[in-house]
Amino acid sequence: MPQLAGGAHHALSIGELSDRSGVAPSALHFYERNGLISSERTAGNQRRYRRDALRRVAFIRVSQRVGIPLKDIRAALDSLPEARTPTKRDWSRLSRLWRAELDARIDTLEHLRRDLDGCIGCGCLSLKACRLQNPEDNLGSAGTGPVRWKPDPTE
């Protein structure tokens, strides 16, 4: 295999990285455009990835699978010393940081599920009383009538 700058051997082509990681080349290009992975170019202008890109891609995929937005994944990877590949210890630290956000999302979804069951039971979808459309009757303080629609003053 070609040698990358700095003496690193065993660089992976995009096809090899795709095959080994199970991630489509288009997704790898997307990750690279968004600063999640990086490549170097050969003399023939072909991308070559260091072998540690496999672990970074695995980290990205697992993070996405649990619902972490790409901007947060990038920030996590950028927080690592010298942009190194995440270790098991890094994953433990980052997952503790993300746990509160995930717990909040779970609580929101459980609340939505409870309200949805109630809404299906009544079937009214009342803008005045529906807990999905009008949580905690926040619209009641705006008075009667169509409070969600605001006319364009220039019309």
Rank of each mutant, 00 (worst) to 15 (best):
P2V: 03
Q3S: 09
A5S: 13
A5G: 10
A8E: 10
A8N: 01
H10C: 09
H10D: 15
A11L: 11
A11W: 06
I14Q: 03
E16I: 02
L17H: 02
S18G: 08
S21R: 02
V23I: 14
V23Y: 05
P25C: 08
H29L: 12
F30H: 14
E32W: 01
E32C: 03
I37V: 15
S39A: 14
S39P: 02
E40K: 07
G44Q: 06
Q46A: 06
R47W: 03
R48N: 01
Y49G: 00
Y49R: 00
A58S: 11
V62Q: 04
S63C: 06
S63L: 00
R65I: 01
G67A: 08
G67P: 05
L70D: 02
D72W: 06
A76L: 05
S79W: 04
L80G: 04
E82K: 09
P86K: 00
W91K: 05
R93C: 09
S95K: 02
L97K: 14
W98F: 12
W98E: 06
R99H: 11
L102K: 12
D103M: 11
R105I: 00
C119H: 07
C124R: 10
C124A: 12
L125F: 06
L125M: 11
S126Y: 07
L127V: 10
K128C: 05
A129C: 04
L132E: 05
L132C: 03
L132I: 15
E136P: 02
E136I: 04
N138A: 13
N138W: 15
S141W: 07
S141Q: 12
A142W: 08
A142D: 08
T144L: 11
T144R: 11
P146N: 14
P146F: 03
V147N: 06
V147E: 01
R148Y: 10
W149Y: 11
P151R: 11
D152N: 14
